[in-house]
Amino acid sequence: MLELQNISYNAEDENGKKEILKNVSLKVNDRFVAITGPNGSGKSTLAKVIAGIYTPSSGRIILDGEDITDLNITERARHGISFAFQQPVRFKGITVKDMIKMAANKEISVAQCCDYLSEVGLCARDYIDREINASLSGGELKRIEIAMIIARGTKLSIFDEPEAGIDLWSFNNLINVFEKMHEIIKGTILIISHQERILNIADKIIVVADGEIQNIGTRDEVLPDILSSAGTCHVLTDKM
């Protein structure tokens, strides 16, 4: 179980201090948890705080009863947190196979590596030896990013807008990917998304607005609210 206790995060910009997360507290212990909310509301920041990329200005983070607030990125990764970036990173000279192997953290066969890629709908043969550089398209990169999280197979997986840039055809497969991942790992999958279809599979939905939790509850409790509220609905339709 992941628990955030009174998390705040401030960033410095030209106008001085800016409060990006304000006293966020939540507990997640479900299969699928969706985080949604307007652009710039603090969703990615929240994910980065959980992964250890940002250090909160105050508050504690507890994972399965252990306080992990002071652990760095590497230690949190080793404690079972995975994070698929909203904007995947490119590397010159590192191949898709290298990355998947690093993610799996063990020697895996080319066949296993291919399995992970097939899950995200990439024809493995065409990809395993390609460099993760500028020659890959945005959608291809997003899929590889997801394959890496599957290869890691940790108890907490965070996906930051996994559907962005993924074509409609693959969208259903993406949902299958999450369902299969849960079947195998039995952990928690936390998905930041603006897509109604992703919110539809969530056991719990968290709505973040202006750095605060505006609403949290089951799909049935929260979804009707989102769909009827003009502001958020606007964001949802814009993204679709």
Binding site: I53, I73, T74, A77, P88, F91, K92, D98, N105, R152
Partner: peptide
Amino acid sequence: IKLMTLGLTEKEAEERIVNGF
């Protein structure tokens, strides 16, 4: 950061990036 989220230490991540490059 990306490689550290895969469980590599900063030093290991640096080596991987340089060697690949």
